[in-house]
Design a protein around this nucleic acid. Sequence first.
DNA 1: GCGGCGACTATACGATCGTACACTAAAGTA
DNA 2: TACTTTAGTGTACGATCGTATAGTCGCCGC
Lengths: 204, 204
Amino acid sequence: MAGTPQQADNDLTAKARIRNAALALYADFGEDATAMRAIAEAAGVTVGLVVHHFRTKDGLREAIEQHILGLFSHAIDQAPLEGTAAAIAAARDEAVASMLARNPAVIGYLRRAVLDPTGHRGRILEMLTRLAADRVKTLRSAGVASVAQRDTSQTIGVMVRQLGQLFLQPMVDSMWAQLAGPDEAEHDKPHLVVKVHEPGAPGS
Amino acid sequence: MAGTPQQADNDLTAKARIRNAALALYADFGEDATAMRAIAEAAGVTVGLVVHHFRTKDGLREAIEQHILGLFSHAIDQAPLEGTAAAIAAARDEAVASMLARNPAVIGYLRRAVLDPTGHRGRILEMLTRLAADRVKTLRSAGVASVAQRDTSQTIGVMVRQLGQLFLQPMVDSMWAQLAGPDEAEHDKPHLVVKVHEPGAPGS
DNA sequence: GCGGCGACTATACGATCGTACACTAAAGTA
DNA sequence: TACTTTAGTGTACGATCGTATAGTCGCCGC
């Protein structure tokens, strides 16, 4: 009765429902274009309850970003710490990718947060960068991470690899939808490659 | 007297000044967060004149996107049609890159427009894709473009190569600013690589 | 059993938004 | 000269926004 796997989050607390509804709306339409009344309606509550739980709209965003940070942190920490350095890194990448696939709204939210360089509001990228840098440092001092490049480059590489392609994918998708004829299928779509390399390195 | 190269656009018509001011503000803060009164103030006019020239806020965005399309079209068409297919493609890439460097607000505007998949409003990406596809087709039928890949992939490749890196760069920049110590300089910053390749091709 | 407290609703306020409109000044045109 | 058009100003209206606040209901500890 409680908990068919595909049901909505009817069994969550109202506070969590509000947070999730806001995250989904922010991902789809952006924070500016989302009214608190729309969030309340999507969560099945009234505006008053939103401000009761989160005080202000800024407080709501803060809660959302803490929630996202927790999702990343939890996903990383549950990946097994076994095998070679490359295997550990791959397991973490996959754990994060799986979490993002289960929470597509997080991708949309982060895309908007990251592409907005006027970031006096929202420090989610800063927090995620700190998280990634911390885990890289820990792995390195435990001797289970490659030290072929600087740790700063390694951190940026992890972030770009995990997020960069997801951010650019909608651009490729809409271009493909516009250009591809009916005879060309989804699996013919070109693949995006996003990565970083050290300055002065060979290659274009 | 009229036209020291670095001066602001004081000699432009009020309509052009409004359009440029709106483009700059949209690039920095987004359309939703930019009030028409702020645009008018930045252009040195009143709100009434903005609506007089552009009717509505939608009309203003339409004028901006037409302007951007003209910038791209003009930049491509002034690149010389000489040398090998690769040389022509390189000349066009450079002409577009130069135009974007002279108009940084265009990059910011396009970043927001393109990474925002809820695109019932704004068809600038669609228009730019059509422009790119048209030029690819023309070059191919003139026999001065590579035919090693499908034209759709080639078109997407051009767009991603010219825009993808510019869109993701702010993410790398802010991470670098957070991670790099005072001893690490700008030229040590890792390089972004964004490209596409055909599905099923070798490589990771 | 009762007082307090958290969850929650309903309503109202002030600010700001996009837009409409009436008006003036200057310039073109017959 | 007289008429029309165009650039530009100033103000006001209705809608919507975030937020504040008073009040209701139910639960829990003593």
